[in-house]
């Protein structure tokens, strides 16, 4: 669980403090979900949507960045251009979901960015600095360590079941049972191993956890926070005074 920072991703071009990334994540998802998109605010909403794109460029993940941009542009502009020409049945099925996803995708991408550029150790350290208890940080870090494992195990089970020709959609209950049970068996035993290894390394010890991560606010974090303040000093007055 504790991946040490010795091999940490220090060569990335934009290195922000995990707390700043958390703040960005929170701001983007709250602004897009809870905010309004009427009038001028619609154009202001493009700014938080652009943030994950810029970060992906900075990580040199050009392909992902382009896919994200394409999906967003199609969802935002493509639907409103197409809708009048499509039959109602198609509109009912897809357009609304696609339109709603323009509000979800940026937040989700930002979450992906947060956890792909932060090692578990850095994350736990940042949480310690914010005085979040171990009760919350340990399960969260385990969870993010576990998501890739889940995918791996599930694909393995899926392949095995396909080989045995069990589990098509014709028999959903059987499919559920024959996939869920072996999957849970392997995941739970991996979890037990993980627990044993973490306990051996002193997860339960009452001492304060030490680490080798360099965490701290730099000028980059200041720039991000200042930009956020500028953005909200534009956004909030417009949102309030339009009523």
């Amino acid at each position: 669980m504790m991946r040490y920072c010795v091999y940490g991703k220090n060569n990335q071009s934009i290195k922000l403090d995990p707390r700043t990334k958390l703040l960005l994540c929170l701001c983007i998802s709250v602004t897009l979900i809870a905010g309004s998109s009427a009038g001028v605010l619609r154009y202001l909403n493009y700014i938080p949507a652009l943030v994950p794109f810029l970060f992906m460029i900075s990580l040199k993940k050009y392909k992902n960045a382009l896919i994200y941009l394409a999906v967003y542009v199609v969802c935002e502009f493509g639907t409103s251009a197409l809708v009048p020409y499509l039959p109602d049945a198609v509109n009912i099925l897809f357009t609304g979901v696609i339109a709603f996803s323009t509000r979800l995708i940026p937040g989700a991408m930002m979450g992906w960015f947060l956890f792909s550029t932060t090692t578990v150790s850095e994350f736990v350290t940042a949480m310690d600095r914010m005085h979040v208890t171990k009760k919350i940080t340990v399960p969260i870090s385990v969870m993010f360590r576990f998501l890739p494992t889940i995918r791996e195990e599930y694909t393995a089970v899926q392949k095995a079941m396909r080989l045995r020709e069990i589990g098509s959609f014709r028999n959903p209950v059987k499919m559920l049972e024959y996939r869920m049970v072996p999957f849970l068996m392997s995941v739970v035993s991996i979890g037990n191993d993980l627990a044993a290894s973490a306990l051996t390394r002193g997860l339960d010890s009452p001492c304060k956890r030490t680490n080798m991560c360099r965490i701290g606010f730099t000028w980059r974090d200041v720039v991000v926070v200042v930009l956020l303040i500028i953005f909200y000093s534009c956004y909030i007055p417009i949102a309030v005074f339009r009523r």
């Binding site: 399960p139 385990v142 969870m143 998501l147 889940i150 995941v187 979890g191």
Partner: peptide, 19 residues
Amino acid sequence: KLTGKDFINIGVFTAIYLA
């Protein structure tokens, strides 16, 4: 009191439920 093993179990099952 909750121990480290409990926290890890919570993490594992939250991940499964989330997936």
